[in-house]
Amino acid sequence: MTDHVVANRAPAGGPEPVLRVRELVAEYATPRGALAAVDGVSFDLHPGESLGLVGESGCGKSTLGRALLQLMPPGGAVRGRVELGGRDLVGASLPVLREIRGKDVALVFQEPMTRLDPLMRVSDHFVEAIRAHRPGTSRREARAMGRAALAQMGIPPTRADNYPHEFSGGMRQRIMIALGIVLRPQLIIADEPTTALDVIVEAQILDILDALRRDSSVGLILITHNLGIVAETCDRVAVMYAGKIVEIGDVRQVFSAPKHPYTKGLLASTISLETTRLHSIDGTPPDLVTPPPGCRYAPRCPFVMAHCTDAVPLYAEPEPGQLAACYLYPGANADGRATPREDAEVAR
């Protein structure tokens, strides 16, 4: 049932998805009990497509990025299915995961300042990464590949042998991206790649990611809290709240006509150069050790109805290709009915 609804259709006759995620759950063990930071997430990603995963702190988006590559910290557990080119990564053996990480999927993290070994030259990082997947590569060849990837990121070849502390934050992030793409992966997962950077550098990095996507049809999952970035860089957007995706669809559709009340609230709260009025959402996100019953946004939702707390809503499809887990729309109930509210929507 989920499969049929969630499998966002590719352009007619289009290629198979690069990534298929079904009912992904990522849990941490806490003194108070299990905390499901990601609680039943499903989506597809097609080649060359860029998906923005957006949400505020505590929604589970960063955990999701790590869970996809089974990189949870000790005490964490992952359930569900993550299919990359047909192979399920959940429960895969360590050698299989090692092979995929860095070669088929690249992960770019948030804090570039601490992501490189301070005792190793940048060029040696490349040699290490390349040889981890192609052991026969000569040092010379690996260094040449590294220089080419760096040049693509705007880092001059004369600086390839410098140590990490000799580079600024923006340049280190470019190095991280270069390290990610040197083996031509099918998919890049970027977790808040520009949050620690200034706005101009951020724009430069986003341009780079965009160019990468267009030129080499690499898939991109961009995890961020910044809606502006998603609007500028992504084809589709998935909005996360309390460990679940509450809305997913084409970015133009979702931004111009958001369906889920949380999406509406989030868009309204975003301060941009054209903001005329301030808007905020009352309340705070729920505790994920004991989440509230039914729809998790119900306690804060301006459109809440009596039955919203009965059961978790299924995905309705108010517009083709746009899914929202909300009882306002037909399909969210198990029996397919909808009970829309009569009041007008909140003006944006």
Binding site: L71, L97, G102
Partner: peptide, 22 residues
């Protein structure tokens, strides 16, 4: 627990090398 160790793992570098070299 360092960030660069996590990054190296994410690039698929082998466990023993991550341990020793980094």
């Amino acid at each position: 627990r360092a960030d660069y160790v996590e990054s190296a793992r994410a690039r698929g570098v082998g466990d023993s090398r991550v341990l020793f070299r980094h």
